[in-house]
Simulated assay, not measured.
Amino acid sequence: MDIIIAVLFASAALSLILMVYFFLDYRRHKQDWKKKMRTWYPEEKRKSAISVLGDRYDQSPSSEKLHRKLQMANVTLLPSEYIGIHVLGFLLLFVVFNMIFSMSVLVSLLITAGILGAGHFLLFYMRKNRYEERFNEQLSEICRLLSNASKSGMTVTQGIDLVAHEINSPAREEFKRMSYELKLGVPLEQVLRKVQERNASRDFQLFAATLLIQKKTGGNLASTLETMAHTLEDRKVLHQTIRTMTSEQRYISIIVPAMPVFILLMMNNIMDGFTDPLTTTPGIVIMILFVLGIILSFFLIRKITNIKV
């Protein structure tokens, strides 16, 4: 009897293993067939109404200014996505202040609007030159690529086309545009002037001037670009060292103003009516002075730590 039970148990276990094996094999073949069908007959993905509205806004002229600001801040978001994040942030912060911290509806709306407005301003203030900084950080690599291209016998136009394929963003987009314009017959000087209008940094001005002077007067372009690459790398290392040494002060300028606000909200959640004195005339005066002090200290700290290299 025990032998029969053991045989039946082993047969059941083997059947289960075979069933799982054939089921997984069937799923694998099914997925491969689906991939082939998608390749042969691609289906157009349906978009929701929100996505369609977002695409229309991104393509409208009213979004160009916001798109340009996001690009200069090196924020990889579409204007519709940025606005959508603000809408979700508004709803979330309103629920937090009204439900968790027990603030009134009007106060919650004002605080939420103030935080989002300040966040919008600080984002573009703190990252207003981030695009140029990222672009300038790549200039040393660009100079080295152009120098190697010149050593191998390529022209400046061919070197720019090489950089457009080898460099990463954000310089890739600029050099791709330069390469297309040069292939269409636009003079190099005019192409560089257009890029200088979009990137007015000193490093790129020096880079553009070097290319134009070497093109007009001749000379060893490879050696000049190689020397410039070493100089830009030394400047980048110095800039990163300064940012590392001043990182504590820059984070303090953000954390210190946020701490008393958080403590005030927590005390209001623990003790009912804790913020009621702030609605009186002396309380309003104190709040105004407090906000002005926070804003002044923030800009002073950022100004002191903003060391030009």
Rank of each mutant, 00 (worst) to 15 (best):
T155L: 05
L70S: 01
Y26I: 06
E81A: 08
L16N: 09
E226R: 02
D161H: 07
M271A: 11
I3M: 08
L211S: 00
F290R: 04
K65V: 09
T275N: 08
H230A: 12
I111E: 03
L92C: 10
R144E: 13
S80H: 02
T275Q: 03
G114N: 05
K34G: 05
R243A: 09
T76D: 13
F175S: 14
F204A: 02
E81N: 03
R56K: 11
V256W: 00
I284K: 13
P257D: 00
N129K: 15
E43C: 06
L92W: 03
L292M: 10
L232S: 04
L146N: 14
M99H: 08
M228F: 00
L78P: 01
S247T: 11
G159K: 14
L77G: 01
L109N: 06
Q205P: 02
L109I: 10
F262Y: 05
I288F: 07
M271K: 06
L238A: 13
K128G: 14
I142F: 12
S223E: 15
G119Q: 10
Y57A: 04
T224P: 00
A171S: 15
L8P: 02
V87G: 02
L292N: 05
T275I: 14
L24H: 10
L264M: 12
F290H: 04
E166G: 03
A6D: 11
T157N: 15
L18Q: 11
K36R: 13
L109H: 02
T112L: 07
Y41T: 08
Q138N: 14
L162V: 11
I160H: 07
L289D: 00
S62L: 09
M266C: 10
A12P: 06
E248L: 04
F22N: 06
L289F: 13
M99P: 00
L265T: 04
I270H: 03
D203N: 09
F175M: 15
K34E: 15
F23M: 10
D234T: 03
S179C: 07
L206N: 05
C143H: 07
F94Q: 04
I263N: 01
N74G: 01
S108N: 06
M72N: 05
I270C: 01
G153P: 13
A164V: 08
F23I: 07
D25T: 04
I85T: 02
I83K: 14
R68S: 09
I307N: 03
R28H: 09
C143A: 15
K194C: 02
K303N: 14
I284V: 11
D276E: 15
E44T: 13
Y251R: 01
I242C: 03
E43S: 13
S48K: 07
K69R: 15
R144V: 05
R127G: 06
M259E: 01
R56Q: 14
H230N: 12
I115N: 04
L78V: 03
Y57C: 00
L8T: 09
A222F: 05
I270P: 01
E248D: 08
P170L: 04
N269D: 10
L212C: 06
R27T: 07
P282W: 01
S102N: 15
L123W: 03
A12E: 05
L139F: 11
K45Q: 10
